[in-house]
């Protein structure tokens, strides 16, 4: 039997396993909801009320409302879902990446992605 992935044995690489899928269910469902225009409107109008509709815990709510991507991922948020937040409140994916890496944006582009900035 091959070793099971999904157990974070690769450094700094959280895999979306049963634990995260379960833990992040509320955040991801909330974010999935943003694929409907009426929900995007609701999020814009009253973000806190929109998040409450999906039963987010105070900790989860805080992470979303402060756009703390690293924390959202730690709580089980998956980028493919939570990225939809950036459709409502624009931010570049590289900024989300840099935030998780704990790097300045330019530094991230240069040293992770090999861009000449």
């Amino acid at each position: 039997m091959e070793e099971k992935p999904g157990q974070d044995r690769i450094p700094d690489t959280p895999l979306f396993d049963r634990k995260r899928s379960l833990g992040g269910y509320r955040i991801n469902k909330m974010a999935m909801g943003l694929s409907r225009p009426e929900n995007r409107e609701a999020f814009k109008q009253d973000e806190s009320a929109y998040l409450d509709r999906f039963g987010l815990t105070p900790e989860e709510k805080e992470a979303v409302m402060t756009r703390n991507w690293r924390e959202m991922v730690r709580l089980g948020g998956n980028l493919f879902f939570i990225l939809k937040i950036s459709a409502v409140d624009p931010v570049r994916i590289t900024e989300i990446g840099a935030h998780q890496a704990g790097m300045e944006h330019d530094d991230f582009l240069r040293n992770r992605l090999g861009k000449k900035v």
């Binding site: 690769i10 450094p11 700094d12 690489t13 959280p14 979306f16 690293r70 991922v73 998956n78 980028l79 493919f80 994916i93 590289t94 989300i96 990446g97 840099a98 998780q100 890496a101 704990g102 790097m103 991230f108 992770r112 992605l113 090999g114």
Partner: peptide
């Protein structure tokens, strides 16, 4: 590519 975690931005040309 890697979008999540502290290794975000990992590429391996």
């Amino acid at each position: 590519h890697q979008l999540q975690g502290a290794r975000a931005g990992f590429v391996n040309p």
